[in-house]
Structures are given as C-alpha cells and as structure tokens.
Design a binder for these strands. Sequence first.
DNA 1: TTCGTTCTAGACCAATCGTTATAATTCTGC
DNA 2: GCAGAATTATAACGATTGGTCTAGAACGAA
Lengths: 189, 189
Amino acid sequence: MGKASLHKDNLVRTAMRLFRRQGYASSGLQQILAESGAPKGSLYHYFPDGKEALGEAAVRLAADMIGRMLRDLADRHSDPTAFVRAYARTMAGWMQASDFESGCPIATTLLETAPQSPAITAAGLQAIDDWTDVIAGVFERDGMPRRSARTRAGLVISAMEGALILARVRQSTRPILDVVQIASASGTA
Amino acid sequence: MGKASLHKDNLVRTAMRLFRRQGYASSGLQQILAESGAPKGSLYHYFPDGKEALGEAAVRLAADMIGRMLRDLADRHSDPTAFVRAYARTMAGWMQASDFESGCPIATTLLETAPQSPAITAAGLQAIDDWTDVIAGVFERDGMPRRSARTRAGLVISAMEGALILARVRQSTRPILDVVQIASASGTA
DNA sequence: TTCGTTCTAGACCAATCGTTATAATTCTGC
DNA sequence: GCAGAATTATAACGATTGGTCTAGAACGAA
C-alpha cells in the first residue's frame, strides 16, 4: 500500500502544470500523457471519467499545495500583514520563476469550466473555502471579529487571484506584492 | 461610410461573448461563425490572421466597453467609495444576469494566451492601463497622491478580477460587492 | 455596360480532439 | 506454476480543430 501509483500522481501533477500555464481546453490528453511519462493506456484506467476527472484531480492537488503553503505561513506569522506579505512574496517568486507564464493553478481551469462542470466547480469551491479558513484564522487570531475576518480573507484571495492575472499581462510582480495592502487596511463602514 | 461592416462587428461581439463564457480555446471558429450569423467566408476576409486576430479584437472591444462604463460612472460619482460601489453593482448585475456563467470579458482569454500571444497580451495590457487611468483619476480627484492613486486603482482591478472568479465558483455576487471595501480602506505604510 | 474591388460559398486540408473497445501484458497472491 | 486482477498497448472511432484555396457572387464607380 501507499504506492499511490506513481503514474497516476505524475498524470495529475502534469495536468496541473499544463492547465496552469495554457489552460484546460488547450491542454490535450496526448500532451499530458507525453509530458508525464505515464503509459498511454494508464490514463483511462486511473481516470475512467476522462478529462473532467483529471481536471478535478488537478484542482484538488493544487488546492492542497496552496493550502499547505498557507498553513505553513500562518504558523510562522502571527501578524496578518506579515502573513500576507509572505504569501505575496511566495506567489511572486513562483510567478517570476515561471517567466510569467503560470499564475494560479486553479483560476484558468475554473474560468473555463465553472459552473458548467459540477465536479470541477465543487473542487474549486472546496479549495477557496479551505484557503479562506486559513487566512481568516490569521485575522481572527489577531483580534478581528469572525465575520469581518472571513470577508477580509475573501478580499485577500480575490486580490491575489486578480493580481496573478495582472502580473502575467504586465510581466511584473508588482501587482502581486501590492496585495499586502489589503491586509493592513482598516475595515470599512 | 461608417458602416464598419455589420458582419465583422457581429463576429467580434460573438467572439467576446463566447470567450467570456467558455474561454478562448474552447470556442471554435465554427461556433463563433454560426452564432454570429456572419457568412462562412467572411471570417478570414476580415481577419486574415485567423483566430488570434479575432481574439485580439474581442479583447479590445471588451476593453472599450468596460472603459466606457467606468468613465460614465466616474462622471457621476466624485466620491471614490461611491464610484467603486457603482462599479461593483454593475459587475454584480452582469454576473447575475448571466447566471454566473460570464465574468470578466478579458480575464479568461488572457490567462489562456498571455504572455504567449504578443498581440492578445498587448491588447490586454492596454485595457488594464486604460481602466487604471480612469479609476486612479477618481482617487486623485479626491485628493490622493498620484502614485498612491494608481496603486489603489490596481488593487481595485485585481480585487474585481479575482472576485469575478470567486463569484462564478460560489455562485454568489458577494465577493464582487465586497470589493467596495478596497476603495474606502486607509492606505498602508 | 464594364471593370475592378469587396465579399462570400464551399470544398478540402492535415492534425488533433476526447473516447471506446479489445487484446495483450505484467503483477500478485496462493 | 496457476489463476485472477491490475495495468498497459494498440487501433480505431466520429467529430472538430484552425487554416487554405479556388471560384464566383455582389457591389460600386466610370
């Protein structure tokens, strides 16, 4: 047990990478197969429901990755501003490392499929809920009321998602780093 | 003169609508042709460079639409918070009217093509620059220094782009309406 | 009417799309 | 070694992809 099927993992990882860079529809199963190194016949064995199931798995994997990263940062930073700054710096680093070709690993897929594909949309919803929990927790821990903390967390996610779009178009990490201002702003009426 | 070719306009309009809802790669030229009502032979007559040129035109049309809307709201609202609130309400209305199927008319296309396609990326860059000008103008008019105003405008755009993603996934206009808080927040260190 | 331009139809291209079915292979427990 | 399950290869499916080419229809000006 625990093998968790190397080939299956490679398929999902490769799908995530390609969906992130070039989108869901543009990434053919052939390309995913080829770049993952998984055997041709293994795709429909591990994913009998085809591409949509692979898309869902890719979104779930991405959600886990980001979620783990956020939890790690939340453990190391009690101050919300410092936390969001670390978050922004991490994403900016990824963006730069990809030469501004890869942003959020779920945004493109979701925009192409939500809400038409229930499976992928549900996976995306869980991802956003999970991230919201973590980020709101940091604000709450700092004394912010629960409801405000969740709204603020949503704003951080929105701003980050948008910033990852602007960064690719502008070919600059500036929009990403500016997101930190959301954390330190005072609440509104 | 000024006919501006009805068929060409219909092609671009239809392309914008479809790219917005289902993405750039998922929208075939056949579908665009069919839904636009334009003659089959007219596509490559008006767009000899093919789909990419159509994508660029769609992005430019969308940029114009949003730009005009923003300028109209900027004329009617001198208070930045009121302006962003009106902006958010407009976008929320569109989102709801489309049954949460259509968000930003350029985001999906850009995520699928930037920065690989220089033409589409350039069109997207101009769009964002234009919107930034309008929004920053409202903040400046309210007394905010120019640099801060432009940064804040970028945050509003980022937050709105991200909120349009979250809205589709959540099937709720809440994330969009929350963007107004960006306008009324105090600046940061 | 005639000429030249603008526009459109239609056939066709090779390539790829996601998917299915069947058969062969490899692995695992006994 | 044998049986059965898990995995993989291969071929083919119909549909569609974006793009090209040629022929001709519709048009405007002289």
